[in-house]
Design a protein around this nucleic acid. Structure first.
Lengths: 234, 234
DNA sequence: ATAAAAAGTGTATTTTTTACCCTTTAAATT
DNA sequence: AATTTAAAGGGTAAAAAATACACTTTTTAT
């Protein structure tokens, strides 16, 4: 009992990233085709191993950057997965992170290099190891987070329309929402700025663009207001 | 790039337990006086290292058992703490767990052996490393969990009174609650069974005992009911 | 007999949530 | 030029949930 650190096991610490994106059809997940054994050829989350000289957050950042070319995006630790046999090669503990990215901004070339593809969250392939479980956990964390904080905007371009925002929330909550109630509720929080410009690409009438006013949101939070982004049942 | 596992760092994985208890004066935390360097003599969470042949959950169980003698108690993974310098001796990732235990049932001898003491959560000493941060995270997780699931009863003996339950929720939410609204809300969930017996120890009139009916609760959940244990503002 | 200390109880008001459909706009088609 | 079409946009009433609030009951101790 001299040195309490000495006789303990050193273990591989992995990081796996659940990467969410959104296009106006729904919520998406970025997966890669694993190109080494075991489970070569199967779909998998983007992952890597923790290095001795980096923190968990830094490692997750690095791994996300490797695949998407993106940095400084929303990234939150999800859960530590630690079943003894979760990786058949060697005892590995994996800390899962999930990321919210603007789907239009990632590096398409990198994606091809890694054999990556976007999948609709409603129609995912079977994944390696415990990655299915990780995705489930990420989906439910995202629901929780989105109902308390304005993380939805991380998935959208700077300018977005109400119909787009609604489709996003419907994707996150896996439920349909009433248009009028949704608009009222979102607008009543008074953190969106309506632009003069309209998006004419997707409808004849065109939908007004909005921007999220982060400063105003922060001011309200600092003021003690508790803004809730809960969905509204249809 | 032959073996993707080979050239990675193996790292110490620690587990730290935030152990909550409750007596009718408020919410408590179990801390131990660290008896080895570094930081010998300072207060600390109960911790230990992950062994190669056990899962994270199993390790947390083991460590909790070491200190309290308890097994099969409520134990939930909280967060992975992974700053490079969090432990000055060696790079260590710590997965924090929090436990909810019935304060009357733990092994007092073990506690003495470890130099452990119960502290009121409102009046905690400064802890080693990042343990203060862990405690903060546990407090806020407990708030969340208690407002969605009946975890409060894990902290109480089988039979408890309304005033006790209210004090417990007030401790968890760090707010005062209105007696009438609290009772109405809790009873309206229809998962408590009122006993004929009264607790006469703490008041002249005596308060009726209640039991949590876990089966009835499960039946409701399976039925799709969403019972919420949210507090009521005063 | 009386005082003291905590348990127990009901109602009215306000706020929040929900349900529900017709009009507007402008591009595309005839 | 008139008509069709497809999506955007807007308001109200009813129901449900949350809140504020104060006196009575019970029993032990004096």
């Amino acid at each position: 009992m001299q040195n309490h650190y000495l006789n303990n096991d050193r273990i591989l610490v992995a990081l796996d990233c659940i990467i969410f994106g959104f296009d106006r059809r729904g919520l998406k997940l970025l997966l890669i085709k694993r190109d080494f054994e075991p489970e070569k050829g199967k779909w998998s989350l983007m992952g890597g191993f923790l290095k001795r000289e980096e923190s968990l957050d830094e490692a997750a950042d690095r791994i996300l950057h490797q695949l998407t070319g993106l940095q400084n995006v929303y990234l939150e630790q999800l859960y530590g997965f630690g079943e003894v046999d979760r990786d058949p090669v060697e005892r590995t503990v994996s800390i899962a992170y999930y990321a919210l990215i603007n789907i239009r901004e990632h590096d398409r070339e990198l994606l091809e290099q890694y054999g990556a593809r976007w999948f609709s969250v409603e129609d995912l392939p079977d994944l390696i190891f415990d990655h299915n479980e990780m995705v489930q956990a990420a989906k439910s964390r995202l629901k929780y987070r989105a109902s308390h904080e304005p993380v939805g905007f991380e998935l959208l371009p700077e300018k977005f329309t109400m119909p787009e925002l609604q489709i996003l929330y419907e994707g996150i909550y896996e439920t349909e929402l009433d248009k009028r109630n949704f608009r009222r509720r979102i607008l009543s929080m008074d953190v969106l700025k309506k632009m003069d410009e309209k998006q004419k690409k997707y409808s004849k009438k065109g939908a007004y663009f909005y921007k999220f006013n982060k400063d105003k949101y922060q001011a309200k939070i600092n003021n003690g207001d508790s803004l809730v982004f809960k969905p509204i049942k249809l």
